Simulated scan of single mutants.
Amino acid sequence: MTKPERRDEIVRAALELIAEHGFHGAPMALIAERAGVGAGTIYRYFENKDVLINELYRGLEERIYPVITEGYVELKAFRGRFLHLGTALLRYFIKNPLDFRYLEQFHNSPYGVAFRREKLLGEREGCDVYHELFKEGVAQQVLKDVPLPLLFALSFGPLLAAARDHILGFIELDDALIARTIEACWDAVKR
């Protein structure tokens, strides 16, 4: 196995184990075992578990961004851009349940606090098309004039709950129900 393949196997094993068992249920030794490498090998690629966890997050964010923004710049209407991003994100989560489960854990843990703060305050470069869209919507008086964290909650809360319930088998999100879900998120934030 080449070095890039080893690193990829470590990342894949960590993603699977953390999504299945949480951060504390995925010790480095178990990650190494699942990846088929020695425990010490992980430390050649990642200084410690915290670095691995944060790198996993960054990698997922970099994979998601091009998916949700494909075709986005061509859209001129604000509502169309909002619906596009929400639909693309929900479909990504449905197609990639491990990614969703990891991201949900990350954002609801101490690891995610700094990233969320940077995103909400707009201190993070790139990969945050939502922050830009929400700022524009408030400035143009298209969206409710409420704090950005509330706009994020009203937009993502229902979307994340729907993705979670689909992944758990409680509902089946087809194209029509996805569209209705994103419309409901729009209704929650529009003026």
Rank of each mutant, 00 (worst) to 15 (best):
108 N>L: 13
113 V>T: 14
94 I>K: 15
106 F>N: 01
101 R>C: 04
134 F>L: 08
110 P>V: 12
95 K>A: 15
114 A>C: 00
124 R>L: 10
117 R>A: 11
120 L>C: 01
89 L>E: 07
133 L>W: 07
79 R>Y: 07
124 R>D: 03
106 F>S: 06
99 D>G: 01
144 K>I: 09
100 F>Q: 05
92 Y>C: 04
124 R>G: 01
134 F>W: 11
122 G>K: 09
110 P>N: 15
138 V>L: 06
126 G>W: 10
115 F>G: 00
117 R>D: 04
138 V>Q: 12
134 F>E: 03
140 Q>V: 10
122 G>R: 08
105 Q>I: 10
134 F>M: 13
82 F>H: 08
92 Y>G: 08
112 G>M: 07
83 L>R: 11
125 E>P: 02
137 G>V: 04
90 L>P: 00
129 V>C: 04
138 V>C: 02
140 Q>W: 11
115 F>M: 09
101 R>A: 14
85 L>M: 10
130 Y>S: 07
79 R>L: 10
121 L>V: 06
137 G>P: 01
119 K>I: 11
143 L>M: 10
98 L>D: 11
96 N>L: 02
134 F>G: 00
137 G>M: 06
111 Y>T: 05
138 V>P: 02
93 F>E: 11
98 L>W: 12
96 N>S: 09
95 K>P: 00
135 K>Y: 01
